[in-house]
C-alpha cells in the first residue's frame, strides 16, 4: 500500500516534471495543465491565508505567473506543488504586510459575509448561530497570529499536510516543522481561550 502510494506520488511528480520541462521549452499548454492540476490546492491555501476570495485569486494568479517566469529555477528534486506552495507562502506574507493598512472593520465584515454566504445550516438556526460565532472567533484568532504561526497551522491543521511536505515548503527540517506547529498551536490556544471562554 505504502509502496503504491509512493509509486503513484513518484509518477505524479514525474508527470509534473515532464510538464515543467515542456513548459520550459515554450509549450504553454503544458503549463496550463500544471495550472489545472494544482490551482485548487494553491487556491485553498491562499484563501486560508488571506480569508478573502478575491485576494486569494490574486495570489493564485501571481503565484502561477511567478512560477512561469521562474521555471528555469525549479529543481526537479522537489515536488512541483511544494515549490508552488512556497511561492504562495511568500506572496501571502508580502500581501499580509501590505494589507495591514486595511481597517479591522473591513476585514471583519468580509469574513462575516463570507461565512454567511458559504456556510450555514438553515434547518437549525440556533446551532448554526453558535457554530458561526465559534468559527468567526477562531478565524479572528487565526488571522491575528503572526504569519509564520498562521501558515503552519493552515498547512498542518486545516490542509492536513504531512510534516516532510511542510518542511520542504517552509524550508526547514521535519523536526523544525513539528516544533513550529507546536508553538503555533500554543499561540493560537492563547488567543482563542479568551474568545471561547465565555461559554465555559
Amino acid at each position: 500500500m505504502g509502496y503504491d502510494a509512493s509509486l503513484s506520488g513518484r509518477m505524479e511528480m514525474d508527470t509534473d516534471v515532464a510538464l515543467v520541462r515542456k513548459a520550459r521549452d515554450g509549450d504553454f499548454r503544458a503549463f496550463e495543465q500544471l495550472f489545472d492540476r494544482h490551482r485548487s490546492l494553491v487556491y485553498r491555501f491562499a484563501y486560508q491565508m488571506t480569508s478573502r476570495r478575491d485576494d486569494a485569486e490574486d495570489v493564485v494568479q501571481e503565484a502561477f505567473v511567478r512560477a512561469y517566469q521562474n521555471l528555469h529555477r525549479y529543481r526537479d528534486e522537489a515536488k512541483f506543488t511544494t515549490w508552488l506552495l512556497r511561492i504562495v507562502t511568500n506572496l501571502c506574507t508580502d500581501q499580509a504586510r501590505m494589507s495591514q493598512r486595511r481597517s479591522a472593520l473591513e476585514q471583519q465584515e468580509a469574513a462575516g459575509a463570507l461565512d454567511w454566504m458559504t456556510n450555514g445550516d438553515i434547518e437549525d438556526p440556533v446551532n448554526n448561530l453558535e457554530a458561526d460565532r465559534r468559527k468567526i472567533a477562531l478565524r479572528k484568532a487565526l488571522n491575528a497570529l503572526p504569519m509564520h504561526h498562521k501558515s503552519v497551522i493552515i498547512l498542518r491543521d486545516i490542509e492536513e499536510r504531512e510534516y516532510p511536505d511542510m518542511a520542504a515548503i517552509l524550508g526547514c527540517t521535519d523536526g523544525g516543522a513539528k516544533l513550529r506547529v507546536l508553538r503555533a498551536r500554543r499561540a493560537l490556544k492563547e488567543r482563542i481561550a479568551p474568545l471561547l471562554g465565555e461559554d465555559r
Binding site: S40, Y47, Q48, A56, K135, L138, R139, D157
Partner: peptide, 17 residues
C-alpha cells in the same frame, strides 16, 4: 475544540479562476 474548529475552516468558496 480548536482542532474541530480548524477543520470546519477548511471549507472554501469556489474560485472563479
Amino acid at each position: 475544540d480548536m482542532r474541530a474548529g480548524l477543520k470546519s475552516l477548511s471549507d472554501v468558496p469556489e474560485d472563479q479562476f
